[in-house]
Design a protein around this nucleic acid. Structure first.
Length: 413
RNA sequence: GUGGAUGUAGUUCAAUGGCAGAGCACCGGAUUGUGGUUCCGGGCGUUGUGGGUUCGAGUCCCAUCAUCCACCCCA
């Protein structure tokens, strides 16, 4: 075997692809229910779009982005996430001119140069929805409600919803100062990573998985106590909207989103049984992003989820994913005359909407029926000299095993 | 980028340093007009790749690639 799919990428084979179709079908249906319309953007973007939006210091930009020069020396990147491209397109095409609020969804591959692991790939598939144009906390709740509806439509209920407010540029500096002040005296007790976090990004200490660091952060200052009035008010309204529509959530002050553009509400949908990579969807409000990308200051909120992890979770739960599509008819011919008539018959059957296959080689009948089995054909249509003489088709029900005769569909055939 | 485990037939796995095998799947036949059961028959695969040690390497050593798991990070 000479060629292999590149590291961290994989093929979705026919034995699996129908499941993906199911996921995307349910996603599109749910998105439509919420009034979202699809937007498709290129897989390639100018790399500074991501550098500017995600933050120069973010891991995505620092070490995970596929970045290269094209033949004219332009620096392009394979998109590592979906929101920045959507926002770029939104600004470029002035989508806000048409409506006060823009509701968009997308589906597509994303790329991050990461070490592959359970539920983590270099090319992976995400879906996302974005509500652009309002700072109203109702929409934060609506995005969360959308994700809940999507998961529910897939028959998936075993997830946890964690929400937090990450503050805004007005209150974050104050909070980070308080955090540093708290951890500084405990510095020597922190793990090595957390000691550097203390200097670079103290909030990440709260996310550490080392037991002792967790113990230390238990009584650390909480962002929610340091929110300014506006953020506090916003968060409390989001919660009351959620309460209102009966969505259960856990307030998790440790949620720190990986991208710099998030403000106010942040949320994650988690399925703990997935192992280390257990976040199936994450999102939040990004009021500063659109301005950073070059547009006016426009508030927005959105969420993105990973199809791989969703599928892993659904399979773990043995959720109903539908079934691999079956074929209506396998046509089996016996003898030269039937052989000659088959193409016209199969053409006719397909035109009437019956999925039909026929093998022009002449396998043994046994092999022909086995093939019909392998394709999960509902019926086998058999034509041979006997049938042709009587203008009949022998129709075998492949599930019941019974057999009867039907008229040729059109006597002119 | 760091650490650990693992790479043998389509697949799941065997093979005290001494002739590369089995189950399942697949193909053919028993049944030249009938599948899913049964019976019989069908396996030369660069043992991931490249070096090394050895009379001899699937087995030991080194490198490399890939997969899995964890760190990191996130979807």
């Amino acid at each position: 075997m000479k060629f292999k799919a590149p590291r961290g990428t994989y093929d979705i084979l026919p034995s699996e692809s129908w499941k993906w179709q199911h996921l995307t079908d349910v996603f599109r249906r749910t998105a439509a229910l919420f009034g979202f319309e699809e937007i498709v953007t290129p897989v390639l973007e100018q790399s500074d779009l991501f550098e500017r939006s995600s933050g120069e210091s973010s891991d995505i930009v620092q070490k995970e982005m596929y970045r290269f020069q094209d033949r004219k020396g332009r620096t392009l990147a394979l998109r590592p996430e979906g929101t920045a491209p959507v926002v770029r397109s939104f600004c470029e095409h002035h989508l806000d001119a048409a409506a006060r609020l823009t509701r968009l969804y997308y589906i597509g591959p994303m790329f991050r140069y990461d070490r592959p692991q359970a539920g983590r790939y270099r090319q992976f598939y995400q879906y996302g929805v974005e509500l652009i144009g309002s700072h109203n906390p109702y929409y934060d709740a609506e995005i969360i409600a959308f994700e809940c509806a999507f998961l529910q439509n897939l028959g998936f209920n075993d997830y946890e919803l964690h929400i937090n407010s990450v503050g805004c540029p007005c209150c974050v500096p104050d909070y980070e100062a308080a955090l540093s002040a708290y951890f500084q005296p405990l510095k020597d007790e922190l793990c090595e990573d957390c000691q550097t976090r203390l200097i670079k990004n103290p909030r990440r200490i709260l996310d550490c998985k080392i037991a002792h660091c967790r113990d230390l952060s238990r009584s650390a200052p909480v962002i929610l106590d340091h929110l300014d009035e506006d953020c506090r008010q916003h968060f409390s309204e989001v919660k009351s909207y959620l309460d209102n529509i009966g969505i259960a959530y856990t307030i998790d002050p440790r949620i720190v989103r990986g991208l710099d553009y998030y403000t106010h509400t942040a949320f994650e949908f988690i399925y703990p049984a997935l192992g280390a990579q257990n976040t199936i969807a994450g999102g939040g409000r990004y009021n500063g992003l659109i301005e950073q990308v070059g547009g006016r200051s426009i508030p927005a909120v959105g969420i993105a989820g990973g199809f791989e992890r969703l599928l892993l979770a659904l399979e773990r739960q043995s959720a109903d994913l539908g079934s691999r599509p079956a074929l209506d008819i396998t046509l089996i011919t016996i003898g030269e005359t039937a052989q000659k008539m088959a193409p016209q018959l199969i053409h006719y059957l397909r035109q009437t909407g019956c999925s039909t296959i026929w093998d022009p080689e002449k396998p043994s009948l046994k092999a022909a029926f086995k093939a019909a089995d392998a394709q999960k054909s509902r019926y086998a249509y058999i034509i041979g000299d006997d049938e042709i003489a009587q203008l009949k088709i022998t129709r075998k029900d492949m599930i019941a095993g019974t057999q009867d005769q039907i008229d040729w569909p059109d006597s002119s055939l």
